[in-house]
Amino acid sequence: MPILSIKNLTMAFGGLAALTNINITVEKDELVGLIGPNGAGKTTIFNLLTGIYTPTQGVIEYQQNGSTRTINKLKPHVISSLGIARTFQNIRLFKDLTVLDNIRISIHKNVNYGVMPAFFKLPRVYSEEREILGKSNEILEIFGLESKKYELAKNLPYGEQRRLEIARALATNPSLLLLDEPAAGMNPNETSMLTDLIKWIWKEYGLTILLIEHDMSVVMKICERIYVLDYGMLIAEGTPEEIRTNKRVIQAYLGGELQNDA
């Protein structure tokens, strides 16, 4: 039973088709990669999965606790509550808030006290806030950010910002995690640490992960299966080994690289 199935997905902006007839399935507990040259439509798929865009055509099905739901018409916050979390290619932290607040905000949906108790700061607010704090500290510790919890997110070094964004996504307690180029802009050392971290949270939290990545070393190292996207169309699917030798993929990437150089 797949946790996520994307069926015949098409997305057009104005008259321009960004994605054409995409079919992707992700099984529970899988770690799947999504690769492709710049502008292939990878991030658009994430935006469709998280409800930021509504697809022009096609269906997205998400399976949770044995029941399947069509999620392509739901709002982002509803989708998040179903257990899909994501990071962003261009890091969208709450930059002017502290590291701790970034995490606390994403635990908000577990908060039980209402607005009225908040106004008057009733005792239950204190006790629940303590709980939130404990949970946040736990997550920050795992990601090695505990010592920086009172710093503003924007003051963290780049690599730690990326890590914080993953931590923040994890704090929503997802079953499916979508990572959009988590290693972008990192040096080889940071990248390899991040790769280990992703692998670790994947196992530890029993997550299913869909990963967009440019860095082939990351994708080849941790992904079980890979989808390749080019010009809004799927051109290949398979294990890292199969993808490495796939002619169309090589062509797409060489073409892509030539364009990049020009």
Binding site: I52, K75, H77, S81, A85, R92, F94, I105, K109, T172
Partner: peptide, 14 residues
Amino acid sequence: SIREDEIAAETLGI
């Protein structure tokens, strides 16, 4: 968080 980044807030379930 809405002031800071609406889209990020939304995807965190808000």
